[in-house]
Amino acid sequence: MAKIEIYTKAFCGYCARAKALLDRKGADYRELDVTMDRAGFETMVERASGGRTVPQIFIDGRHVGGSDDLAALEAQGKLDALLGAS
């Protein structure tokens, strides 16, 4: 199973949508809440090549983007392959 990390903030609808998709897929993920974590937020921005919005999603260390990007991978039939990779 792939290692999934998702950076989130409290009360973020896009974060909830991305997590719901991952939950429907039965994927285990590590949620990193950066709501009050400035250092964690800066780490996210660095890893996401400047991306400052949440969620920021990484699968096996590869930045896949945000909620819309995750949904697009699902619509294209490419998400399952990423989630099954290790």
Rank of each mutant, 00 (worst) to 15 (best):
V45C: 13
D28N: 13
R62L: 02
C12G: 12
G13C: 13
A71H: 15
I6M: 08
Q76A: 15
V54G: 06
I4L: 01
V54P: 06
I4H: 03
D68S: 15
G13R: 13
A2Y: 01
G40V: 04
Y29Q: 06
Y7Q: 07
A18Q: 08
A27S: 14
H63D: 13
I57E: 11
M36N: 15
V64H: 09
C12I: 06
D33P: 04
K25H: 13
R62K: 13
R62G: 06
E46N: 11
E42G: 09
D68C: 02
M44W: 11
T53M: 08
F41I: 03
C15N: 13
A2L: 01
K78E: 15
I6S: 05
E5F: 05
L21C: 09
V34K: 03
K3F: 06
M1E: 05
A71Y: 04
G40H: 11
K19M: 12
K25S: 04
R17L: 12
P55W: 01
M36E: 15
I59M: 01
R47D: 04
A27R: 09
D80I: 01
M44Y: 09
R52V: 12
D68T: 13
T8M: 07
I57D: 07
V64R: 07
R17K: 15
D33I: 03
A18Y: 05
C12R: 05
M36F: 11
M1G: 06
V54D: 08
I6C: 07
I57K: 06
F11N: 15
K25I: 00
A71S: 09
E46F: 08
I4D: 00
G50V: 11
Q76R: 14
L83Y: 02
G13I: 13
